[in-house]
Structure formats: structure tokens, C-alpha cells
């Protein structure tokens, strides 16, 4: 990662991706329902704390995408664990930027109805899990880059 970030092109790409992701997250925070005092309220998650979280997550996502691209350039497929972890991180971050309980209280999977309110009830824990998943993914990606092309 260190050597990647020494290339100005990659730095700009990281920032560009981060801005796009941040814009999407900020839009969701401002327009989608959030939860405040156990009430479904449009835009309730548009708080300074959530904006900082979105900014940090967007940067991590940008870093991950650039690292992933570099790995593919060296014709090496990423580890399954790395992909799964980053997927979990993106999923959790996505589902905690709005109030799932207010938006999609129930989803049907294979004939079973599953409530998604736990994403709202344990919002903070899922946010931390999303951030950790992205950080570990980037760490694993960096390790693989060092192994494959000594370009980590």
C-alpha cells in the first residue's frame, strides 16, 4: 500500500473513489429514514458523527479498490477471506447508513420472513464491525501485495 500511495495517480484515484462513495453515503444519510428516540424520521442519521464515519469508510473503500486493482494487474486473484471480509464490511456499512427497521422492516428469503431491525438496534456495533472488516481487508490485501509483487 505504501508504494501504491507514493504514486500520485493512485492517490487521486483513491480520493476520487472516496468522494463518490462519501457523496452516496451522505445522500442516504440525509434522505433515507433514520431512527431518533425510537421514531422513524427522514434524515435523522445525518449527524456529524455519521458524516465523519462515512468519510473514513469512504477513504478505506478507495484504498481497498486501488489495492485490489493493483493485485489484479499482477494477475493474481485475491484470497477468498479478503473478498468475504470486504463484502461484509460494505454490506454492514451500507445497512447502517439508514434505519433498516424503518425502511425494510421485513425481507423474505427462501419463504422465510426475516426482520432487519437488529441493524438499527445494534447500529453502533455493526458500524464498528464494518470498519474493522475494511481495515482487516486492507491489511490482508497489503500482505498479499507484498507477497505477489513486493508492491505493498
Amino acid at each position: 500500500m505504501k508504494s501504491i500511495l507514493q504514486k500520485p495517480t493512485y492517490v487521486f484515484v483513491v480520493l476520487g473513489i472516496a468522494f463518490v462513495v462519501f457523496d452516496v453515503m451522505a445522500y442516504v444519510l440525509a434522505k433515507f429514514p433514520g431512527e431518533i428516540n425510537f421514531a422513524c424520521t427522514p434524515g435523522a442519521y445525518f449527524t456529524p458523527g455519521n458524516l465523519v464515519y462515512s468519510a473514513v469508510f469512504s477513504l478505506l473503500f478507495g484504498l481497498f479498490v486501488v489495492g485490489f486493482y493493483e493485485l489484479l494487474k499482477h494477475k493474481s486473484g485475491p484470497d477468498a477471506s479478503l473478498l468475504s471480509l470486504s463484502g461484509i464490511g460494505i454490506l454492514f456499512a451500507g445497512l447502517t447508513t439508514f434505519c433498516t427497521a424503518c425502511t425494510i422492516p421485513v425481507i423474505s428469503l427462501f419463504g422465510f420472513s426475516v426482520g432487519l431491525s437488529f441493524f438499527t438496534d445494534y447500529n453502533l456495533y455493526f458500524k464498528i464491525a464494518a470498519m474493522l472488516a475494511m481495515i482487516i481487508s486492507i491489511y490482508l490485501l497489503n500482505k498479499q501485495l507484498l507477497k505477489e509483487c513486493d508492491c505493498g
Binding site: 431518533i36 428516540n37 425510537f38 421514531a39 422513524c40 424520521t41 435523522a44
Partner: peptide, 18 residues
């Protein structure tokens, strides 16, 4: 009222399922 549920009790506002 900005979200649901919202209550006005004798003119006073409470927001949410407190």
C-alpha cells in the same frame, strides 16, 4: 411532528416510542 410515532399530550410534544 417529524417522525413516527409522535404524540401531542395536552399540547406537549413527545417524539418516538419512548
Amino acid at each position: 411532528i417529524t417522525g413516527t410515532p409522535g404524540f401531542v399530550i395536552n399540547g406537549r410534544l413527545i417524539s418516538g416510542a419512548r
